[in-house]
Design a protein around this nucleic acid. Structure first.
Length: 689
DNA sequence: AATATCCGTATTTTT
DNA sequence: TACGGATATT
C-alpha cells in the first residue's frame, strides 16, 4: 500500500470500490462490474498498481476476450505508469496464451513446437474428410453436416460433458447417430495428431494436459505471480479448469465479469463460472461495481428495465449521476430501406451537432443485418468499418494462399495440400489424393526420419495429367522459391510469389478476381510486419484481421469513419451515439434461438449489451415490413412485431417516433414505396459505374 | 475423373 | 440469397 499523500494521482481518481479492487493484495478476487462501471480503468489501474508494487511485468498474465482488449489495457497501464514495462506483460486470449505456452513447453507432453493451428472451418473440413472416408451420412437418413459435427465436437470439449449428454440436450435431432458421430470424432482426433495440427479446442486441451503433469504444472504455475481475467462471464468450464490449475499457492488471481452481459453460451460459456468462483477459490473477496459512469440516466433506466425482465433476475441495479432530458428514441420505419435512410439521416444530424462519425456506432444482431445500410452509406459516401460477420481470412481465395504457406510450414498438413493441389486444372479430389499418397503426406507408418512430402514433391516423385503439367510446374517453382528456413524470403515476399502462381488459376476459378487480388495485396501488407512465416500463419488464425470495409474502401487511419458492428463484437466498446437496427422479434431475439427460456434470456442480455454501449444518445429502429425476397420484384412481404424485450409497460421509457411518410402506410403502392426507390437507385448505381 | 449445372434448403453470434 | 450436394455432361 502507498503511504497517504504519496500515492499516484490515477489511484486517487478511482471511487472507493474501484480503488479497493485495484489495490487488492494477495488471494483470489472477484470483481462484479456492471456495464460502464469503469471496469477497464480499474483493471488497467490494477495492472499499473502491481507493476508499481514491484511485480516484474513478465510475471503478470492478463487473459482477455480478444487481443484487441489486451492491447488496449496494456496501453492504458503504460500511460498510467509512464513506463514501457507493460510490453513484457503476458497478454492475450486464452487461445493465444495457450499457443505461446505450448510452443515453449509442449515438448514436455509430446507436442512438437512446430505444430500448426487450424480454424473452425478447417476443422469442419477435416471432420468431413473423415466422414466421407468412413462412408457415413451417405444413407438417405438425416445425418449432421460438417458444421454441425464441428459444433458438437467443440461443445463437447469446451463444456467437458459427454457426447451423449450434449446430443440429447443441444442436438436432439442427431441423438440417433451417436455411434457414427463417435467414430468420426475418433478418426478426426487421430488425424490431427498424425499431422501435428491443433484446432482451437486443442490449444486449451493441451494446455490443460500440460498442467495435469505435476512437474510441468509446477514449472508453468511458477511463471506468474498474478493472473487477471477479463470478461469472466464468457469463459467456459475448460477455461475455469485451466485457471484453477494455473494457480499455484503463490499466485493470486483476479477475475472480472458481469453475469448480465454473458452472451457466449453458444461457445459453451457459462455464468456458472462466475457464480462458482468463490467456491472454487476459497477465500475469495468479492467487490461489486454498480456505479455507471458511461450513460445518461434515461439510457440506464431503460436498459435496467430491459434486463429486469430476465427470468433469472439479478439484484444488481446500475445507477448514474449523468442527467439528461433526452430519452432513448424508438423509431418505427416502413421497412428496411426506410430504416437505412433514417439511420443515415440521424447519423449526419448528430455529426452536424458535433459528434464525429467515430463516436457513433450502428449495432445489430447478425452480420448480414447491415447489408442494406452499407449500400446506403456507400451511396452517401459515408465511410465506415465493419466488425464481426464474415472475416477476411475466411474468404476462399485468402484461404488458398494461406494453405500454401501452411504446406511450407508443416508439409504433413493434409488439408492444406488438398486445397492447394485442387486449384490446378484437371486436378480434383481423386488426383489430389493420388499425389498426396505418392509423396507421403500422411504419416501412416514409416519412421520419423522419412523424407518430407515437400522434398518428395520437389524431387519430382509425383506425376500429373498433361492438362495440369504447366500449372504443376509453376507450383513446384513457387514452392521452391519460398521453401527453406534460413534462406527463405520474408513472408510478404512469399505471398507475392504465390500470388503470381495463383493469379491465372483464380481467373479460371473465381469471379471478381480484381477484388480478390487486392485482398492478397492486403494480406502481403499484413505479413509485412512479420519476419517469420510461422508466426504470421498462426497469428492469422488466432488473431484474424477484420475485413476492412470492402464497400467504402479502407478508410485512412486519420479519417473519420462510422463503426458498424455485430452486438457480439461490440462487447466492451462504447460510443457517444449508438444506433440499434432491427429491434424486431425474429431479429432480436433471433428466431434461431427462441427455443427455451435460457436462449431467450441470452438474447435479452445481448440486447442489454447493445443498449448499454451508448453514452449520450441511443436510437432504436424498428422496420414494420420485411420483404421475403430482398431484391424481389414482387411485393411479397410480412409485418414484423416489435421485439418482445420492449413490452408496453416499459415503452414509456422511450420516445416513440413514427416514421414520417407523406403517404399513409396502407396507401403505399408498388413503384412509389421507399424500398422500390432504393432498389432502383441501387441498380442505377450498378450500371452507371 | 473433372467440371458444369441444377435444385433444395437453411438462415447467428467467435476463438 | 448463397451454399452444399447431387446429377448430367465433357
Amino acid at each position: 500500500m502507498f503511504v497517504t499523500g504519496t500515492e499516484p494521482a490515477w489511484l486517487a481518481e478511482l471511487n472507493p470500490e474501484q480503488r479497493r479492487a485495484a489495490t487488492y493484495g494477495e488471494g483470489p478476487l472477484l470483481v462484479v462490474a456492471g456495464a460502464g462501471s469503469g471496469k477497464t480503468r480499474t483493471l488497467a489501474c490494477r495492472v499499473a498498481y502491481l507493476l508499481e508494487q514491484g511485480v516484474p511485468p513478465e510475471r503478470l498474465l492478463l487473459l482477455t476476450f480478444t487481443r484487441r482488449a489486451a492491447r488496449e489495457l496494456l496501453v492504458r497501464a503504460e500511460q498510467l505508469t509512464g513506463k514501457n514495462a507493460p510490453g513484457r506483460v503476458w497478454g492475450g486470449t486464452f487461445h493465444s496464451v495457450g499457443n505461446r505456452l505450448l510452443r515453449m513447453h509442449g515438448r514436455l507432453v509430446g507436442l512438437p513446437e512446430t505444430f500448426t493451428v487450424m480454424d473452425q472451418g478447417d476443422a469442419a473440413d477435416l471432420i468431413d474428410l473423415v466422414r466421407l472416408e468412413l462412408g457415413l451420412g451417405k444413407q438417405p437418413r438425416r445425418f449432421p453436416r460438417k458444421d454441425t459435427l464441428a459444433a458438437i465436437y467443440s461443445r463437447m470439449v469446451n463444456a467437458g460433458t459427454g457426447l451423449q449428454g450434449i446430443l440429447e440436450k443441444q442436438f436432439p435431432w442427431c441423438a440417433d447417430e451417436a455411434e457414427g458421430i463417435r467414430s468420426i470424432f475418433a478418426g478426426y482426433v487421430a488425424r490431427k495428431r498424425e499431422q501435428d495440427v491443433l484446432d482451437y479446442d486443442d490449444l486449451l486441451l493441451f494446455w490443460k494436459a500440460m498442467l495435469s503433469v505435476p512437474s510441468v504444472r509446477g514449472r508453468i504455475g511458477d511463471l506468474f505471480d498474478h493472473v487477471l481475467v477479463d470478461e469472466y462471464q464468457d469463459t467456459n468450464a475448460l477455461q475455469a479448469d485451466i485457471l484453477l490449475s494455473m494457480r499455484k499457492d503463490r499466485n493470486s488471481i483476479t477475475v472480472v465479469g458481469d453475469d448480465a452481459q454473458s452472451i457466449y453460451s453458444f461457445r459453451a460459456a457459462t455464468i456458472a463460472n462466475i457464480l462458482d468462483f468463490p467456491t472454487q477459490h476459497p477465500g475469495t473477496e468479492i467487490i461489486t461495481l454498480e456505479r455507471n459512469y458511461r450513460s445518461t440516466r434515461p439510457i440506464l433506466e431503460s436498459s435496467n428495465a430491459v434486463i429486469a425482465q430476465a427470468t433469472r433476475r439479478h439484484s444488481k441495479e446500475l445507477w448514474s449521476e449523468r442527467e439528461s432530458a433526452q430519452k432513448p428514441t424508438l423509431t418505427t420505419c416502413l421497412d428496411e430501406s426506410h430504416q437505412s435512410h433514417e439511420v443515415c439521416r440521424r447519423i449526419l444530424e448528430h455529426r452536424e451537432l458535433g459528434t464525429p462519425l467515430k463516436e457513433q456506432a450502428v449495432l445489430f444482431r447478425a452480420g448480414h443485418h447491415s447489408t442494406m445500410l452499407e449500400f446506403e452509406l456507400t451511396r452517401r459516401n459515408i465511410p465506415f468499418v465493419k466488425y464481426g460477420g464474415l472475416r477476411f481470412v475466411e474468404a476462399a481465395h485468402v484461404k488458398d494462399v494461406v494453405a500454401f504457406l501452411r504446406i511450407l510450414e508443416n508439409p504433413h498438413d493434409e488439408l492444406a495440400w488438398f486445397r492447394v493441389l485442387q486449384l490446378m486444372r484437371g486436378v480434383g479430389p481423386a488426383a489430389a489424393r493420388r499425389i498426396m499418397d505418392t509423396i507421403g503426406v500422411r504419416r501412416t507408418s514409416g519412421p520419423d526420419g522419412a523424407p518430407s512430402p515437400l522434398v518428395n514433391l520437389l524431387s519430382g516423385e509425383a506425376e500429373v495429367a498433361p492438362v495440369a503439367a504447366s500449372e504443376y510446374g509453376g507450383l513446384l517453382d513457387a514452392l521452391r522459391d519460398c521453401e527453406g528456413a534460413a534462406t527463405a524470403p520474408a513472408p510478404a515476399v512469399q505471398i507475392d510469389r504465390i500470388r503470381r502462381w495463383v493469379e491465372p488459376l483464380f481467373v479460371r476459378k473465381y469471379d471478381g478476381v480484381a477484388a480478390r487480388l487486392r485482398d492478397l495485396e492486403q494480406l502481403a501488407q499484413i505479413a509485412g510486419g512479420y519476419g517469420e512465416r510461422g508466426r504470421f500463419v498462426t497469428d492469422l488464425t488466432l488473431d484474424p484481421p477484420n475485413s476492412s470495409g470492402d464497400l467504402a474502401g479502407p478508410p485512412l487511419l486519420d479519417e473519420d469513419y462510422l463503426v458498424l458492428s455485430t452486438i457480439h463484437s461490440a462487447k466492451g466498446g462504447e460510443w457517444d451515439v449508438v444506433h440499434v437496427l432491427h429491434v424486431a422479434d425474429g431479429m432480436i431475439p433471433s428466431d434461431m434461438s427462441t427455443g427455451d427460456a435460457d436462449d431467450v434470456d441470452e438474447e435479452r442480455r445481448l440486447f442489454y449489451v447493445a443498449l448499454t454501449r451508448a453514452r449520450d444518445d441511443l436510437h432504436l429502429y424498428f422496420p414494420l415490413r420485411y420483404y421475403h425476397r430482398p431484391m424481389g420484384l414482387d411485393d411479397a412481404h410480412s409485418y414484423a412485431q416489435l421485439t418482445r424485450f420492449l413490452p408496453s409497460d416499459i415503452k414509456h421509457l422511450f420516445e416513440e417516433r413514427a416514421a414520417h411518410s407523406e403517404v399513409p402506410e396502407d396507401a403505399v403502392v408498388p413503384g412509389s414505396g421507399d424500398a422500390i426507390g432504393a432498389v432502383s437507385r441501387m441498380l442505377e448505381e450498378l450500371w452507371s459505374t
